[in-house]
Amino acid sequence: MKGIITISLLLLSTLATAAEVKILQVELREQGPQTWRAAVTLRHADTGWEHYADGWRVVTPDGEVLGHRTLHHPHVNEQPFTRSLSGIAISQDMTQVIVEAHDKVHGWSPDRVTVDLKQSQGERYRLERR
């Protein structure tokens, strides 16, 4: 009985997160002094206007929003997809930023990408300085 309950909980957990937006890749490119451009590749099981990935943002570890990209329409037949945002202000003394993604039904996904600004690449991110 315990095994059946464990398997059931695992299946429910998988189903609950299956529809949340997934961040596949983040590319941060320095544009100028303390100004960056981010290109974020997302995958989401968009079903139409009621349920689609509708944005992503770059935040500090404390949650301050540095840049936010709104996605104005579903991408049902375009998966995965990449969208960018320029003019993100990241001060030189910051050591990391976090990229988060949002969908209309589930809100902010627990799948986040932490970018170490001291490293040119890491798990699911690349960084290019001028």
Results as ranks from 00 to 15, higher is better:
Gly87Lys: 02
Leu66Phe: 07
Arg69Ser: 07
Asp54Gly: 09
Gly55Ala: 12
Gly63Gln: 04
Gln119Pro: 01
Glu64Leu: 12
Thr47Pro: 07
Leu42Gln: 02
Thr60Leu: 15
Phe81Asn: 14
Asp62His: 12
His102Met: 09
Ala89Phe: 13
Thr114Pro: 09
Val65Met: 06
Ala101Met: 07
Ser120Val: 06
Val113Gly: 05
Asp54Glu: 05
Val58Gly: 03
Ile90Cys: 10
Gln92Cys: 12
Trp49Ala: 12
Pro74Arg: 01
Ile98His: 01
Ser84Thr: 04
Gly55Pro: 09
Arg57Phe: 02
Asp103Pro: 10
Ser91Gly: 08
Trp49Leu: 10
Met94Lys: 06
Lys104Met: 08
Trp49Cys: 02
Gln79Trp: 00
Pro110Gln: 10
Ile98Leu: 11
His51Lys: 02
Pro110Asn: 08
Arg112Asp: 11
Glu100Cys: 14
Val97Gln: 04
Gly63Tyr: 07
Val58Gln: 02
Arg57Thr: 06
Ala53Gln: 02
Val59Thr: 09
Asp116Val: 09
Ser84Gly: 15
Asp54Val: 06
Arg57His: 02
Arg57Met: 14
Ser109Gln: 08
His51Ala: 10
Phe81Ala: 11
Thr114Cys: 05
Gly48Ile: 13
Gly67Asp: 09
Asn77Ala: 10
Pro61Ala: 04
Thr82Phe: 08
Glu100Phe: 00
Asp111Pro: 04
His73Glu: 15
Gly107Leu: 12
Pro61Gly: 04
Val58Ser: 00
Asp46Leu: 03
Val76Trp: 00
Leu42Cys: 07
